[in-house]
Design a protein around this nucleic acid. Sequence first.
DNA 1: TGCAATTAACTTGTGTACGAGTATAACAGA
DNA 2: TCTGTTATACTCGTACACAAGTTAATTGCA
Lengths: 141, 141
Amino acid sequence: MDKVDCIFFQLSKAYQLGNRFLTQKVSELNLTSVQAMILGFLDQEDQVTSSELGKRAELDSATLTGILDRLEAAGFIERRGNPDDRRSIHIHLTKKGKTMAREAARVIAEANTDFLQILNENEKHDLLNIIEKLRHEITRS
Amino acid sequence: MDKVDCIFFQLSKAYQLGNRFLTQKVSELNLTSVQAMILGFLDQEDQVTSSELGKRAELDSATLTGILDRLEAAGFIERRGNPDDRRSIHIHLTKKGKTMAREAARVIAEANTDFLQILNENEKHDLLNIIEKLRHEITRS
DNA sequence: TGCAATTAACTTGTGTACGAGTATAACAGA
DNA sequence: TCTGTTATACTCGTACACAAGTTAATTGCA
């Protein structure tokens, strides 16, 4: 078990590194990295259902429920009924939430640039392409 | 916030993909991915202190304590006092633990090969090198 | 129309990551 | 020696990932 050659170990540590980096950057907004990402997605378009948001963010519904709970408690979003389908809900950004979502999107973009600054253009391109290839090829259950 | 270009999003999903893949492979041993990794490290050398193991596995001591609790409860390891430094403990693989550690190392190696099969030699090399560069260059706290 | 299958959101339980703090032990310098 | 610093392992609290299961609403099909 050489950790240097173990892709699972390396992916895990690379993720943790990126996550700590982003977490630190968005902590000025009193958000976690995942909360900032979700607000970033809602900055593009709110009034989406929970399941649409889950698909966009590629998050499990059990995970998303908890995140939405905390964003709602912080006053950034509201859950509203969907008259077209009473099983689902609409996620709505509050005024405060819209402002925060814009800020979150800005900080994430900055952090992305800062983090990738270490790599040259080829490496950035290769990294994203290889991850995309893995994600596309690995059969997900 | 385009998730395709967001390195944090992509690293997170790449990690989750790898972790699910490994978790599924080691589930036949009734282990989690992290437990299998720790046993894999102990297969190389046991009788290490918790902090040495933490350094090797690059795990926080708070995280490691919980993992060791579960490995101990399952009968794979024992915590023994260290007479040389009474603050620390020695982690000792039981007989059952040695067998399981060997199996874990084997399954991880197989999973690694299976997972990386998707990439060609250049891509494997590039991916591991780029991750190493990121991990080396990003200032950790 | 009626019923089975599916879907949306949620709940519960377990495992891990990690910040913060604790008690004990070891150590280093005055 | 005494004291302040550091190190080890631990606890606690919060957040997320995910498997499994629940309830209620919708849909598809005979």
